[in-house]
Design a protein around this nucleic acid. Sequence first.
DNA 1: GCAATGACGCTCT
DNA 2: CAGAGCGCCATTG
Length: 115
Amino acid sequence: MNTHVRIWKTVSRIPKGRVSTYGTIATLAGFPSQPRLVGYALHALPDGTDIPWHRVVNSKGRISPRPGAGRQRSLLEREGVRVTDTGIKLERYLWKGGGTRGRLKKARQKRGGGS
DNA sequence: GCAATGACGCTCT
DNA sequence: CAGAGCGCCATTG
C-alpha cells in the first residue's frame, strides 16, 4: 500500500491548472517506466479523496476510458485546462515535477508530438 | 502460493 | 508515418 501512497503524493504535487502523464508520475514517484502501477494506485483511490487524480492523463494527453472520464474532463476545464478533441496540450499543460515550469522544448518528439 | 489482470508506455515491424 | 505487441510491478481472486 505504501506504493500507492507514494504515487498519490506525487499526483498531489501536480500544480493546479497543470496535468501530468502516468509515465511522468511513475518516474517522479520513483517507478521509472511503470505507468501501470500509477493507474492501479489511482484505481484504488477512495471517492472522497483529496488527490487531484483528474490531473493525471495518459501520454496521448487523453483521458483513459474509465468510468467518470467525462467528470475528469470537467474538473480539468474547471481548473483552466483546455481539453480539445485532440487531447490536452501536453506541451502547455504537461507538468514535469520540480519547478520546471513545464518548459518542454522538443518534448520527446517521440511520434508526431505536436503534429 | 500461483495465475491473471490492470486508469500505460515504449520498441519493433 | 501508422499499427500491433511486449514488458514493467503490484493488487486481487
